[in-house]
Simulated scan of single mutants.
Amino acid sequence: MKACLCKSFGPPESLVFEDIAEPVAGPGEVLVRVRACALNFFDTLIIRGKYQYKPDLPFSPSAEFAGVVDSVGDGVTSVSPGDRVMGYMRWGAAREKVVVGENALVGLPDDVSFETAAGLSVTYGTTLHAYRDRAGLKAGETVAVLGASGGVGQAAVEIAAIMGAKVIACASSEDKLAFARTLGAELTVDYSTQPLKDTLKDLTGGRGVDVVYDPVGGDLSEQALRATAWEGRFLVVGFAAGEIPKIPLNLLLLKGCDMRGVFWGAALDRDPDGHRANMVQVLSWIEDGRLKPHVHGIYPLEDIATALAEIAARRVRGKVILTP
């Protein structure tokens, strides 16, 4: 079978395509024929050896996929050959077939496309875990989403709106904010031209925001924390800006607020049933037409270098999908 391989750490152009032996499902495992897989920002880092996980070489990038069950190993009871499924595997999905544990898969309804499903696990899984499991988000609360036009930011705007929150989208340009408004943002902040803390305060009548969703980090984090309301919750999702901020802890005391880590990957291992329930909810919203995930582009697997370059250049709105 064909596979995209990282055989030495380097830029996207160093990735190669080779025929490799087809994997076999062992006990408790499932062999899936990949119909679509997705790329995320961390794929631009993992192929350079700059991500928190450093897989043994060679490996395939891409952590999330959708496809059809090809065969199952001994003891597998939840899926059968021919079933449509989606899943997450940290890395390794950029190939024609993958083997994963039975618990890594979620059943895929017939009316949700493979291309849509392939891009759901990381962004929407992270976001619903953040809001439901970590923040306890309630209808009527105000959410400020930093980096609101990226893949995770898009999901954060959409899901907060579906959950009944008032969304303030924060991004670095007016065209990004215009995109966020189409996703359900009621208010916007251009933090390239407006002071983030003061603007968030003004937009909430001086009260501050109930929840901050921060996948960006850097200088923006402290500004957003200073704009949280009493007993607000600041969700630490990631550091796309490249800098991990140092936060004055007296701010948490003075505001009676919380900073809560959102380590979705670890939560997935610790509570796979909770993740599956969250993804069933996401799929239900898609079936009902309440959630319409945006796909930036669909590329043949052989064009992965082009797709990764788009992500690295921050030109992506929504998800980047590959089709073997």
Rank of each mutant, 00 (worst) to 15 (best):
C4T: 07
C6W: 01
K7W: 14
F9S: 13
G10I: 12
V16F: 14
E22C: 10
G28W: 02
V30R: 02
V32P: 06
V32R: 08
A36E: 05
A36R: 08
C37H: 13
C37K: 06
A38Y: 09
I47K: 09
Y53H: 15
Y53C: 09
P55I: 07
F59Y: 15
F59H: 11
S60E: 09
P61T: 05
S62C: 15
S62G: 11
S62H: 14
A63F: 04
A63T: 00
E64K: 13
G73R: 02
G73A: 09
V79W: 06
S80F: 06
G82P: 05
R84C: 04
R84W: 12
M89Q: 11
R90V: 12
A93M: 12
A93Q: 08
V100E: 08
G101K: 15
N103E: 04
N103P: 01
N103H: 08
S113M: 11
F114C: 05
T116F: 10
A117M: 10
G125H: 02
T126W: 10
A130S: 11
Y131H: 07
R132Q: 08
D133K: 14
G136D: 03
E141T: 02
L146S: 00
L146F: 07
L146V: 01
A148D: 07
G151I: 01
A156W: 07
V157Q: 00
E158W: 12
I159T: 01
S172K: 08
S173Q: 11
E174F: 13
K176Y: 00
K176N: 02
A178M: 12
R181Q: 13
T182R: 13
G184K: 15
E186I: 07
L187S: 09
S192P: 11
T193I: 14
Q194A: 10
L203Q: 08
G206A: 10
G208D: 01
V209Q: 07
V209D: 01
V212L: 14
V212W: 10
V216R: 05
V216C: 07
G217N: 03
G217C: 07
S221G: 06
Q223A: 15
R226M: 12
A229T: 05
W230E: 08
G232H: 04
R233Y: 04
F239Q: 00
F239P: 02
F239L: 03
A240K: 00
E243F: 15
I244S: 11
I244V: 15
P245D: 12
L249Y: 12
L254M: 13
K255E: 03
D258V: 07
R260P: 05
G261K: 10
V262T: 05
V262K: 05
F263E: 00
F263I: 06
F263A: 11
F263V: 09
W264R: 03
G265T: 07
A266K: 15
A267D: 05
P272N: 04
G274E: 00
G274R: 00
N278I: 02
M279C: 01
V280S: 11
Q281W: 06
D288M: 14
D288W: 08
R290P: 09
K292H: 14
P293R: 09
H296L: 08
G297D: 01
L308K: 00
A309Y: 09
R314G: 03
R315T: 02
R317W: 12
R317I: 02
G318V: 08
K319M: 06
V320Y: 01
P324M: 15
